[in-house]
């Protein structure tokens, strides 16, 4: 049987004639992750394999499962052209093409990032905060921050000091304000060049993954600044939440639930702000500060 999948009309000219039973049977994949249901459509076997390979990377730590065909809130389509292995790759999100004229690898990275973002924004009863996160003596320390603020570097430094690893991408809060792991590999810059991220397992840093949920201990708002000194400024809960908000993914989508959870986080955590210089030195200061300001005061 020969079939052309019904993708967007402008793509049809470039579509492969897909042959074989398997391809026809699995042209749509459905998954659920944190209560978010997503449908993936592919145009051929290569695209199918790409999706299957990307999903465990985008949504690590067994945080998604394949489900039967169902109503979904989100739809991704991945179009690969085997005649053009350099480019020949496009994807759509909810019917809208994500523009690009870049290499297949770049597009697939964007695809992965969009899947993760979709789940992070729409997760049910969870609040995803873009942050590095570790556990120290049973309590979570999270470091919210945008890319290029040195979040991963500091997370790795904390792991080297013996903290357990939760994530270098998302701190996942439940309704009670406890932190859950998002156990992806660390995306480290500086291996290839200052921009390209290299994925490194936490074990390569001598670290170990944390499992389960953890009460929040500290939120550290910090970013790298050359020659900066460790001068922690304790923020009020309200100002602390305000500082966190630019990194809180679902705040626009569901501000009511998000603020309720962040309020609980702020009541239980100390929220501190400072610039930092060297990550290893800073990690030591973070842990000392955390023990003196958080653990002792909270009876640990």
């Amino acid at each position: 049987m020969t079939e052309t999948f019904p993708f967007h009309s402008e793509q049809k000219a470039g579509l492969l004639q897909v042959r074989g039973e398997r391809e026809n049977a699995v042209r749509d994949i459905y998954i659920e992750s944190y209560g978010v249901r997503i449908r993936f459509s592919v145009n051929n076997r290569s695209a199918l394999e790409a999706v299957e390979g990307i999903l465990p990377v985008a949504l690590p730590g067994d945080c998604f499962r394949f489900i039967e065909k169902t109503e979904v809130g989100h739809h991704f389509e991945l179009i690969l052209d085997p005649a053009d292995e350099d480019k020949g790759c496009n994807f759509y999100r909810n019917g809208r093409q994500v523009p690009n004229d870049h290499s297949r690898l770049d597009v697939l990275r964007g695809f992965e990032s969009q899947i993760r973002l979709t789940v992070a924004e729409h997760a049910v009863e969870r609040v995803f905060v873009h942050a590095g996160a570790v556990v120290w003596k049973g309590r979570a320390i999270i470091i919210p921050g945008n890319s290029f603020t040195g979040k991963t570097t500091l997370t790795a430094a904390l792991v080297r000091k013996g903290a357990e690893y939760l994530s270098d991408e998302y701190a996942v809060f439940d309704e009670a304000g406890d932190v859950h792991p998002f156990l992806k590999t660390l995306s480290v810059r500086g291996v290839v060049d200052e921009f390209t991220q290299t994925e490194i397992p936490v074990e390569d840093f001598g670290g170990r993954r944390a499992h389960g949920k953890f009460p929040i201990g500290m939120v550290l708002i910090t970013e790298f600044q050359a020659a900066a000194e460790w001068r922690p400024l304790r923020l009020t809960p309200g100002l602390g939440v305000l500082e966190m908000l630019p990194n809180v993914v679902p705040v626009r989508y569901d501000p009511e639930f998000t603020l309720k959870v962040l309020n609980r986080v702020a009541k239980r955590a100390i929220i501190t702000k400072t610039f930092r210089d060297d990550a290893a030195k800073c990690a030591e200061s973070v842990l000392d500060y955390f023990e003196s300001e958080c653990l002792k005061n909270q009876g640990f």
């Binding site: 523009p99 690009n100 004229d101 870049h102 770049d106 597009v107 990275r109 964007g110 990032s113 973002l117 992070a120 924004e121 873009h130 945008n146 890319s147 290029f148 991220q197 630019p246 990194n247 809180v248 993914v249 679902p250 626009r252 989508y253």
Partner: peptide, 12 residues
Amino acid sequence: TVLAVGTCVRVQ
């Protein structure tokens, strides 16, 4: 949310 995530794979 796009800005919250921050990193773009490649920027035209």
